[in-house]
Amino acid sequence: MREPETTATKKFSLPVALLSLGTSYTATSTRTTSTPTDANTANDSATKTCTATTPLIIHCN
């Protein structure tokens, strides 16, 4: 039987000053535990790089 797909949403904040515009920030998330246990632990981490173009607009890829 296939487990239903689930998602998790996390929010974080980062102070962005005018002098830091154009600076890249890297955020990494790693799952450390789950129930039931994960049979494929190779895909338990994800990284995104974000760049602030204005204090209100931040692009991530």
Rank of each mutant, 00 (worst) to 15 (best):
L14T: 09
P15M: 00
A39E: 08
F12D: 11
S34H: 04
L19V: 14
A52G: 09
I57C: 04
P4Q: 09
L18D: 15
K11L: 10
A27F: 10
L18N: 15
V16G: 07
D44R: 04
R2Y: 13
T37C: 02
T26G: 06
L14E: 12
S13D: 10
G22C: 10
A17R: 10
S24A: 13
L19M: 11
M1V: 06
R2D: 15
P4K: 12
T9G: 09
T30V: 13
P36L: 00
T47R: 09
A8C: 06
T7F: 15
G22D: 08
T37L: 00
A8H: 10
T37E: 04
S45E: 07
A46M: 03
N43C: 10
N40L: 11
T51S: 06
T41K: 08
D44F: 05
T9Q: 12
T7K: 11
E5N: 09
H59L: 12
V16S: 08
P15Q: 03
L18S: 14
R2L: 11
T35H: 03
C60R: 02
T6H: 07
A42N: 13
S34M: 10
N40Q: 07
L56E: 11
K48S: 13
P55S: 01
C50Y: 02
L18Y: 15
P36S: 03
L21K: 02
T32P: 05
A17D: 12
T51H: 02
E3D: 07
C60Y: 08
R2K: 11
T6C: 07
S24M: 05
K11T: 14
K11C: 13
T47A: 14
P36C: 00
T23Q: 15
L14C: 06
T51V: 15
N43D: 15
I57S: 09
P15W: 00
M1A: 10
L19G: 10
L14D: 00
E3G: 04
A27H: 08
A27T: 12
T26M: 03
E5S: 08
L18C: 13
T7C: 15
N43Q: 15
S13R: 08
N61T: 04
T28G: 11
L19E: 13
T6D: 09
T28E: 14
S20P: 01
G22V: 05
T33D: 05
T9E: 13
R31Y: 03
P15R: 00
C60K: 00
A42Q: 12
S24K: 13
E5R: 03
L56F: 12
T23C: 10
R2M: 06
T28V: 09
T33N: 00
A39T: 02
K10W: 11
L21Y: 09
R2N: 15
D44G: 02
K10R: 11
T53H: 02
A27S: 09
T47P: 15
T47Y: 13
K48W: 13
T30S: 12
L21W: 01
E3T: 06
R31S: 05
T6Y: 09
A39N: 02
T41Y: 13
R31K: 14
A17W: 08
D38F: 11
S29A: 14
P36K: 00
M1P: 08
N43K: 14
S13E: 14
A39M: 05
A46K: 06
N61M: 04
L18T: 14
S24W: 02
M1I: 06
A52C: 11
